[in-house]
Every structure is written in structure tokens, then in C-alpha cells.
């Protein structure tokens, strides 16, 4: 990946390499050359690994169906009313099975960061804003991407900012099917 900062003095390493078909080895295996083998390490090779999983959203599935239909769902303890803005099948405090409730499409930024680097999967998307959102009537938060803010102008003033949900038209069945933008952002 390209260096992201102009003041970097070191190139990023990557796993591109050369295919090797033979390795030099002593012609005669006498005592001395067997001893010398200890100097001929390490051999380092590339070892790709790829797996496809069938990931079930299980009891949390309706949340993703909700996002696909532009509805933001949370879970609530039927007895205490404790409300989770990130789905959870059982309440942590009572053990009760939770029920589904619709949460508001508007909330406030509780905490945020701008990621200038990231895990390999998300590097091409940097810089991106991660934020935890709080909602009226919910006791817990929701982790999301925040759009519509200049990532080079990060400011603590963003905390407390009113934000609203936007949904992908073509659902990917991921929590990023919903994302948030400042409440005053114009409708598109």
C-alpha cells in the first residue's frame, strides 16, 4: 500500500516476492558441511490461506432485515425496559429474552475517531470516521461510520453533535448498511 504520510522515511513492506525453485546446498555432506547447515537458516516462504465462512446472524438477524428496509431496530428487556442500541438476545441484568423495538433515526455522537490507518480490509477506505452513537430512550450505544465531516479537521466539538441515520439502497447485510451523517446534512 502507498505511504500515507509525506514525512515517512521507510517504505511499507509487503508480501510480494519471487518464486524460487532451488536452494543452494553443500555438494559434499561431510562433518564440516553438516555443521555449516546451522548457518543456512531461515528459509521463509509465502503461505496463503483463504477460508469462506457461513456466518449466521442468528437471533440478531431481524436487525439486518430492518436495515435493508431502512428501519433501525434495537432490543429491550420486556420487564425493565433497558434498551440496547446494538442487538442482544438476552438482557445482561435480568437474563430475560429481549424483544425488538424501533429506535429513532436520530442520535448524538458519544465518541469518535478518524482512522488514518486500519486493518488490511479497511485500509483502502482510510481516512474514515468511526463513532459511537447514543440515542434517546436507549441505554447502550451503536458503533457506526460517520460521513459528511472533514476527516482532516477532527474536533472534540463533534462529540454531542446531532446525527441522523442513512441507509444503503443496496443492502450488503452488514452493520454498515446504516451510517450516520450530521443532522443538518441535506437530504440526497
Amino acid at each position: 500500500m502507498p505511504n500515507k504520510n509525506n514525512n515517512e522515511t521507510k517504505r511499507e513492506e509487503n508480501l510480494d516476492g519471487t518464486i524460487v525453485f532451488n536452494l543452494p546446498f553443500p555438494k559434499k555432506l561431510d562433518k564440516e558441511s553438516l555443521k555449516q547447515l546451522k548457518e543456512m537458516t531461515p528459509i521463509v516462504k509465502r503461505q496463503p490461506y483463504h477460508v469462506e465462512y457461513l456466518h449466521s446472524y442468528a437471533q440478531d438477524s431481524p436487525f439486518f432485515a430492518g436495515l435493508t428496509n431502512h428501519v433501525f431496530l434495537g432490543n429491550r428487556d420486556p420487564k425493565t425496559g433497558y434498551t440496547y442500541a446494538t442487538p442482544r438476545g438476552a438482557d445482561m441484568y435480568t437474563g430475560n429474552e429481549t424483544e425488538w423495538v424501533r429506535l429513532p433515526d436520530e442520535g448524538k455522537v458519544h465518541a469518535f475517531t478518524v482512522c488514518h490507518f486500519g486493518s488490511e480490509e479497511f485500509l483502502p477506505e482510510t481516512p474514515y470516521v468511526l463513532a459511537l452513537i447514543e440515542f434517546e430512550g436507549a441505554n447502550t450505544l451503536f458503533l457506526t461510520r460517520l460521513l459528511g465531516l472533514d476527516p482532516t479537521k477532527a474536533s472534540l466539538d463533534w462529540i454531542g453533535m446531532k446525527v441522523k441515520a442513512r441507509y444503503l439502497r443496496n443492502s450488503k447485510l452488514k452493520p454498515t448498511d446504516v451510517y450516520f451523517v450530521p443532522a443538518e446534512a441535506r437530504e440526497e
Binding site: H55, Y57, D60, T86, P87, H110, A111, F112, T113, C115, F117, G118, S119, E121, F122, E125, Y128, L130, A131, L132, L143, T144, R145, L156, I159, G160, K174, P175, T176
Partner: peptide, 25 residues
């Protein structure tokens, strides 16, 4: 959480940085 956290942009430095902005605020 690979259902709700990782796919949003999973990156531990990012998670900790969110704690920092809250601590600073």
C-alpha cells in the same frame, strides 16, 4: 464482535482512540 464491530472498520487503535476522545471531552 464480528457481527457488529469488526465490519464497521475493525481496528483496535480506532477503538482506543474513541475512548480517548471521550476522556478528553
Amino acid at each position: 464482535d464480528v457481527s457488529f464491530d469488526y465490519p464497521v472498520g475493525g481496528f483496535y487503535s480506532g477503538y482506543y482512540a474513541m475512548m480517548v476522545t471521550r476522556h478528553m471531552k
